[in-house]
Amino acid sequence: MDLSIWIVFIGTALIGISAALVGTFTFLQKKSLIGDAISHSILPGIVLAYMISGQRNTLILMLGAFFSGWLATQQISWLQRKTKLKSDTIVAATLSIFFALGLAMLSYIQGRPDDGQAGLSDFLFGKIAALNIEDLYLFATVSALIIAVTFFRYRVMFSFAFNKEFMISKGFSLRWNDFILNSMTILVVAMGVQAVGVVLMSALLIIPVLTARMLTYQLRSLITLSLIFGTGSSLAGSYISILGKNIPTGPCIIMVLSMCAISVALLLRVPFKIKK
């Protein structure tokens, strides 16, 4: 009993930390909505992994999620090269194709008599209480990877977000940078959907950094503050959802996050640009 509560809290904290870190850079790159597309797009991967393996093993599901998230980012960049469509159209098209595919597959296995499929609906809104100790090890590994990459690459990713033409002119590879950021996003999303679900995962990426951005324009404080908001709200949200029996975790966390953002906005009242 005690142990499972700890698992939940540590798991949520790890998700909060990684999402806030990666979210800061997707925000700076103005790619927040790609995070949304990725989080919807991993659904078919999760369902497929479940269909093939027949069990709800977090590692296998995450592999599936990674695979379809990666396919989605490939489709987005393929469409960007191949068509004249604007990027919001491309993102929305990719998102809806993958998500619809995922739902169709979900309804296929729900039509079948075997058990376990109920666990998959949890991925839509998240259910943090379903975590076990092995999942935690996996989360810790993924988070460590994300923290390490951020630590070593933050200057490059930050500079790319600010002025990519300059970085290309210095000989940095845009594709490689995009690949790294996309991979980190996919990993975080694959991890985070267990807590907040596919539908609201993008909020966990966007809202912490958005709140932090209202308070500061300096990168260090931006990262620090969004880590605080992200982790704190994830913990508070999952605590509330455990207290209230029937409340899904995802919306709870997002509400706490939004409340943070709104109170910061109200407290500041004066828009941050006008401050000297």
């Binding site: 070593f152 600010f162 951005r213 990168l219």
Partner: peptide, 27 residues
């Protein structure tokens, strides 16, 4: 081509000039 609302300071912009691709890990 520059986003002037981007959260970056004068010093950080100038420091970008010192980033080298060969040693991207360096601070």
């Amino acid at each position: 081509s520059i986003d002037w609302d981007f959260p970056i300071t004068v010093e950080e912009v100038v420091a970008m000039g010192r980033i080298r691709p060969k040693k991207w890990w360096s601070r």
